[in-house]
Amino acid sequence: MGLTYQSTGTSTTREVFNVDTSDKQPVIALAGNPNTGKSTLFNRLTGLRQHTGNWPGKTVLQSQGSYIHEGRKYTMVDLPGTYSLLANSVEEQVARDFICFAKPDATVVVADATCLERNLNLALQVMEITKEVVLCVNLIDEARRKKLNIDIKKLNQRLGIPVVGTAASSGEGISDLLKLVSKVVTGTLKPEPKAVQYNPQVEDVVAKLEPIVKRVVGNELNSRWVSLRLLEGDDTIIHALEKFNGKEQVQILQEALA
């Protein structure tokens, strides 16, 4: 089973999402809550090298662009701004599916430094799906103005992923962010996200379901995360698995080639 999933490969899945992979360049996803300056960051990095369209089959705007860092080209995909990845809306579903199935080489979670608590919620959810996460604490200048002190080093230790403070509007911290991203992409920096521990009741049922999920899904997705979604009654992940790894994908590809 695992073999069939892997044989489809991520590069084809990326094409399903209309992502430019012509030069085999790394793909970076940009996730974050609405109003975090995510678009400002995206514009700052990609400048005029961007184009917009729709997510395949969805009336949700897709912005894609590229940037060059230390001579290497990166494709950057701006995911819709969402509070979570629980697939309650089309935007959340699009963001989740992209991280799950296009498997970006790194996902940058943009958080608003002035209300970190709300934004960490999304970061923790992304960290449950993928290891290649960089947290970008944006609007750090606004936070300073509001006399908020954010301990970036402690955040890094606490979350187990690289963290950088930025002010996208002035450019502060952007080069550090790009360095971290490139290190994660090349594997010289391996984030070890600390998994959220749920209460014993939840952990108990996860322990029961996870081995079964692992058998069916293999290494395609994080089995703990899939188990959690199924246990809370979110079946959309199964539909997504069928869509992106089952026959539908073949159909989409055939349509694209025709």
Binding site: L86, L116, E117, R118, N119, L120, N121, A123, L124, Q125, L148, N149, I150, D151, K154, L155, R158, L159, V196, Q197, Y198, N199, Q201, V202, L228, L231, E232
Partner: peptide
């Protein structure tokens, strides 16, 4: 419980770092 735990965790981390 799951949503609560994640938010709780986010709250704890924020409290420790901000």
């Amino acid at each position: 419980s799951i949503v609560n735990t994640i938010y709780q965790e986010a709250g704890n981390i924020a409290a420790e770092t901000v």
